[in-house]
């Protein structure tokens, strides 16, 4: 039984489309070590703020801002939980996911990278809000918080570049 001419044509088109569907290019570690280094800086900064909060110690400001004022502000906690804890948890989770990206392969590695991207974007959005609050609401700056904000923005940008590379086509 002969296949109708129209259906043959459809099948041919489908096969061509599948052949044209780009495959994923194999990539090296690329910018992942840079992201890990940034996450490490984030862990150190937010870890310091979390430890000082936990120990009820004063934040060392080195005359570069008004750390006590920022620390005392209502914006330094979310329903009683210090935001430094959120930062520490987030940077640690990003580091674990990036470690997964380095150790795993194929789609799992890619999904680990996407997890890191998600957290980095969330961190960037929240840091932007906190920086706005520092400049325009409480009118006090904390160099530790600003460092963390810069790290969050750069981390999100680098993550986006790396994801773009790994989403790339042959």
């Amino acid at each position: 039984m002969s296949v109708p001419r129209e259906r043959k044509k459809e099948r041919l088109q489908r096969l061509q489309a599948q052949r044209l569907q780009p495959a994923v290019r194999a990539v090296g570690n690329g910018l992942v070590p840079v992201m890990l280094a940034l996450a490490a800086v984030g862990i150190v900064v937010s870890g310091y703020l979390a430890v000082t909060y936990f120990n009820d110690a004063q934040v060392a400001c080195y005359g570069l801002g008004q750390c006590e004022q920022v620390q005392a502000s209502a914006y330094a906690r979310v329903f009683g939980v210090p935001i430094a804890y959120f930062g520490l948890l987030s940077y640690a989770a990003i580091a674990v996911l990036l470690e997964g990206r380095l150790r795993l392969s194929g789609d799992r590695a890619y999904l680990a990278l996407l997890g890191a991207l998600s957290l980095a974007v969330a961190g960037m959005v929240f840091s932007a809000y906190l920086t706005y609050v520092e400049f325009f609401v409480i009118d006090a700056l904390c160099p530790w918080c600003l460092t963390s904000a810069v790290v969050a923005v750069v981390l999100a940008a680098v993550a986006a570049v790396q994801v773009r590379r790994e989403t790339g086509v042959r």
Binding site: Q21, L114, S118, L119, A120, V121, G123, Y129, T167, G168
Partner: peptide, 25 residues
Amino acid sequence: MRAQARTTYAWTAAVLGLVMGLALV
């Protein structure tokens, strides 16, 4: 995973991050 699927996943991850950030705000 094909590149098209990866692109979809990448955008989903970025939007998810944006939503998480806004939820925190």
